[in-house]
């Protein structure tokens, strides 16, 4: 019987920091440059891909993060729309308008929330969170404890942290350890 095994990440709550595994999410990497690409993606997702550095756009279904001038990541709950990947792949990849890659298992989403989360992240990240923490919707890629992460400021003091699956347990343990010393 085939079943799912998530990384060993359990809920931790201390020093005004709440750390949770937030899986059951589809993540899709979207690449493209031309006008046709933007139009098609916009139509399929009913969302305009954010063009501004370190930002995101959201609607009731999807969150889209800017990753680079020709790269975005969308993520959403897996029970929301399961065939959106196939639709995107068909209209973008197959028609050579851009590139669509399923990275749902590539990245693990760890939700961290609470007043002290930016203190927590700052103990392992050189990123300047000054602006980021004042702007809900900010997104960024940076390093936390030497590990690549994508951060999305979902709502006030509530951040979705995406990290490669293989690093996720190590980073989680580090986050838990760090939250002892805020």
């Amino acid at each position: 019987m085939l079943d799912i095994l998530h990384p060993k990440i359990s809920n931790i709550n201390k020093n005004n920091i709440d750390i949770n595994l937030s899986e059951e999410k589809i993540k899709i990497n979207i690449r493209g440059k031309n006008k046709e690409f933007f139009t098609k993606v916009g139509k399929i997702l009913s969302i305009i891909l954010p063009s501004e550095t370190n930002t995101s756009s959201s609607n009731e279904n999807y969150d889209v993060l800017w990753l680079s001038p020709d790269e975005w990541m969308i993520y959403f709950d897996e029970n929301k729309n399961t065939n959106i990947f196939d639709q995107l792949y068909k209209d973008i990849s197959t028609l050579n308008v851009g590139s669509i890659t399923d990275i749902s298992s590539q990245l693990i989403c760890i939700n961290i929330k609470g007043e002290n989360i930016f203190e927590l992240l700052s103990s392992g990240s050189p990123f300047n969170f000054e602006k980021f923490k004042n702007n809900v919707g900010s997104s960024t890629q940076t390093l936390v404890n030497h590990i690549d992460v994508i951060l999305h400021h979902k709502s006030k003091n509530n951040v979705n942290l995406f990290v490669r699956r293989s690093f996720s347990e190590h980073l989680y343990e580090w986050l838990v350890d760090s939250s002892n010393f805020i």
Binding site: T53, N54, P126, N128, T140, T142
Partner: peptide, 10 residues
């Protein structure tokens, strides 16, 4: 030129 000012370690 795409992301703004960042630490060298990135």
């Amino acid at each position: 030129p795409f992301c703004g000012e960042r630490d060298q370690s990135e």
